[in-house]
Design a binder for these strands. Structure first.
Lengths: 333, 333
DNA sequence: CAAATTTGCGCAATCGTTTGTATTTGTGCG
DNA sequence: CGCACAAATACAAACGATTGCGCAAATTTG
């Protein structure tokens, strides 16, 4: 069962492959009559163009590479979905790879995509990524690079990010306005833009209302459920706090469980807000206030920026996607 | 910034491209000395083989296509993750497309993958899929087809599925043994294997314990949260039931909310079990009993079957992956 | 030492398209 | 009728890698 090629069609029609190629591309240089004959025969024979051959010859590919830390995370899979929503109708296909939050894997993924001669790469950096040679290589190779969420500002090209500062500001401000006064912030690695920005938003709100920021209430590297669980129990013994703003919903859930474990007066006398609005946030009891980030929208913008870049205008900008505060029970007093 | 090719390397070394190609492939026909020279120079020049050219010539691709109903569903993204875990180290890359549960999109996706000359297709059918010409085309085109989860038994090739029957049996049996007697089953479209099989498991358990199955307690097409919410409220007015086994966690959550809404004595006098063990299942209060399906494992098996098929031995078998019953509060009496 | 074999590499065709440059055929016009 | 010109198609060279075959030099063998 060999695949049918334009040569097969050409032979059957007694013309040359070039005519077939042009006919299928609706080139005016071939008469309408033959164009029709070619197209119907092509359909009849079940012809599917060989995109590899086409890409090879044209020097451009319809494959777009995408690298995410983990595909099975709600936020990222939503973004992928958004990217496909734009890219597929435009005739592109997505080659997806995971970095598993490791620099090593990320580098391998980049190389693999480059070998496949993707037309561009859409990436969210791994937490480990602290050197950027592999991405500089992409840029130098003239392959458009679109970054989202966890980005490196030193790399040229479009960057699509959440409005982390505003999100964190809103979350913290809401806790403050609910009457909580000693609000801790469980953050991630502050070297990473998303966490750094959330810290800024948190500080801004605190500074506006309380005047002074207690740096000791900002704890780094607490993004997993387990870390949240352990940290809340520990910190409550050491410090007097009455609320936590977590940089992620999973750590917030850890706090949630930790509070139950020690029978804190929650909700009510203790406030909690997460970030990310995972599906489970609203399902919890009490439901978890959180910041919703529009993954699908981020994906769509990233895809559009990629298409633009491929078509020659690469924007070296940062596009900030609005977030929304979801007020629920966990932050009520 | 042109990409470096084997011709560039050849010129610099004063040999022909064929020698470069062989050297890089560690072919014994070129001396160890030149092999080394070639490899170091290749690295120096940052050479990345053009896999399109290679695939075109070799007539085989390192791209594997994958089609899932929705990428942003926990179960599917886990499977994708499992697939990559096996495929990437083996040198393959994944081209992922979504069918959005529509036959039309699924067909388009298949064609797109075929145009990209993928080496094989891994697919879970959309709910709408009731005709299989597009997939027969794949098989006829000699492209290995590996199905998982929602499969069509009439198509040749490996099929990897959950042990739906046992899962449903365990879930139902547990409700029965907890003392629930009038157990309804909220199912999906029974024409689809996964739902059909879950009905079988449900019936088996009921038959074993109660002797007779009341067919009117099996309700089809209730897989969304909303459907679960509405149906539980309606059915409780019409029939006397004391438990529900849902074919999915989302509909189970709908029931969960519905029960709260009407202030049923739940948990305790009403039992509830879901299917899928979504992350939120254990986070609910009361926590939701469910059937855990090992997506990662399904993915890994599917990937291995694909590799086998590519290497020439396509197994026309159905591989059943065990599931596990997670007993939680929602099914306690 | 000549013949046979091995070693190391070059030549050229090929995979399926695309595309710049011919070449053929047809049309209109003086 | 002959010429310019346009229309329709053919020719052939790419794109970058792979691979069967051929050929020279080096090595082994009888």
């Amino acid at each position: 069962m060999k695949k049918v090629t334009i040569n097969d069609i050409a032979k059957k029609l007694g013309v040359t492959p070039s005519t077939i190629s042009r006919a299928l591309a609706d080139n005016k240089r071939v008469s309408q009559a033959t164009r029709d004959r070619v197209k119907t025969l092509a359909k009849e024979m079940g012809y599917q163009p060989n995109l590899m051959a086409s890409s090879l010859r044209k020097g451009k590919s319809d494959l777009i590479g995408m690298i995410v830390p983990r595909i099975n995370r709600h936020f990222f899979s939503n973004i992928i979905s958004g990217v496909e929503e734009i890219l597929n109708p435009a005739g592109y296909s997505l080659l997806i790879m995971q970095s598993h939050e490791e620099l090593e894997s990320e580098i391998k993924a980049v190389h693999s995509l480059m070998r496949n001669r993707v037309g561009g790469i859409i990436i969210s950096l791994s937490v480990e990524t602290n050197s950027y040679d592999h991405l500089q290589g992409v840029v130098k190779g003239n392959v458009p690079l679109v970054q989202f969420d966890r980005v490196c500002k030193d790399l040229k090209g479009p960057k699509i990010v959440n409005d982390n500062i505003t999100g964190a500001y809103l979350a913290t401000m809401h806790l403050l306005q609910s009457g909580f006064k000693r609000i801790a912030h469980f953050s991630g690695n502050k070297m990473i833009n998303v966490y750094g920005e959330r810290i800024i938003g948190y500080k801004k709100a605190i500074a506006e209302v309380l005047g002074e920021v207690d740096e000791s209430l900002i704890l780094e590297d607490i993004i997993t459920r387990d870390a949240g669980f352990e940290t809340i129990q520990k910190i409550l013994k050491e410090k007097e706090i009455d609320a936590v703003f977590c940089a992620g919903d999973y750590s917030a859930f850890g706090v949630f469980e930790g509070l139950k474990d020690i029978k804190a007066h929650f909700p009510g006398e203790f406030g909690l807000v997460g970030f990310g609005n995972e599906p489970f946030a609203e399902m919890l009891h009490p439901s978890l206030s959180s910041i919703e980030q529009d993954g699908r929208e981020i994906g769509k913008i990233a895809a559009q920026e990629m298409i633009d870049a491929i078509n020659g205008d690469l924007h070296d900008i940062e596009r900030v996607v609005p977030v929304e505060f979801k007020e629920r029970e966990s932050s009520k007093r």
